[in-house]
Simulated assay, not measured.
Amino acid sequence: MASNKAFWGIVTAAAVGAVIGLLFAPDEGNKTRKKIKKKTNSLAGELLDALEKSKEKAVKVADEAKENGTQYKDEAIDAADEYIDDAKKEINKYN
């Protein structure tokens, strides 16, 4: 969580810094707007890349959790089957 907050803090600071820098640049308005648009598109691309990586990581973690859950379920079923078989053997001893 802390790394996510730090990441978003850096992204936000970079975006604000870039916009402020461009606004105070001595270029004409048209050039400044083009620079802002280019920088915004660049930051948006970086943000989308970061979101995609986060999504991939979340999917990987979810898949691992599902796989572990399935394994634990199968182990529990096997153990329950063994207990049932043992119980049936004990009951048959008295019949």
Rank of each mutant, 00 (worst) to 15 (best):
D86G: 00
D63R: 13
D78Q: 12
G29I: 11
N95M: 01
G45L: 11
G29N: 09
T40A: 15
K66L: 13
R33A: 15
K89W: 04
A79K: 14
G9S: 04
K53Y: 03
K39A: 07
V11L: 11
G9L: 03
L23A: 06
A65I: 06
K31A: 05
V59E: 08
I84P: 01
G69K: 05
K37L: 11
I36R: 03
G29M: 11
E28M: 02
I20M: 11
D27E: 08
L43S: 03
M1R: 04
M1W: 10
L48F: 11
D81H: 09
L47K: 06
L23D: 06
S3I: 12
G21E: 09
T70D: 10
A13M: 07
I10G: 01
G17A: 11
A6G: 01
K39E: 12
K39R: 10
I77M: 10
V61A: 15
V19T: 09
V11F: 10
K53C: 01
I10D: 08
V61M: 12
W8A: 02
K88G: 01
K31D: 07
W8Y: 08
A15R: 01
N92A: 07
F7L: 15
Q71T: 14
T12W: 15
K37E: 13
L43W: 00
G45D: 13
D74F: 10
L22N: 03
K89P: 00
T40H: 09
D27I: 01
L23V: 06
A50C: 02
V16K: 11
E56R: 07
D27L: 02
A14R: 00
E67D: 08
N92Q: 04
Q71L: 15
F7E: 15
A76E: 13
G45R: 03
E46A: 07
A87M: 09
E82Q: 12
E75F: 07
N4I: 08
E56C: 02
E46S: 03
K73I: 12
D81F: 13
T70I: 15
V19A: 14
D85H: 08
E90Q: 08
A50N: 05
A6T: 12
D86H: 05
D74S: 11
D81Y: 11
I77D: 10
S54R: 11
S3K: 07
T40M: 14
E75I: 09
E75V: 07
S42N: 13
D85K: 15
K88F: 10
V19Y: 11
D27N: 03
D78R: 09
D86T: 04
E67S: 08
L47A: 13
E90P: 00
I20L: 14
K31E: 04
A76Y: 13
I91P: 00
K89L: 09
A18S: 12
A2V: 10
A18C: 05
A65M: 09
V61I: 15
L22A: 06
K60H: 04
L48K: 10
A76F: 13
L51D: 14
R33S: 13
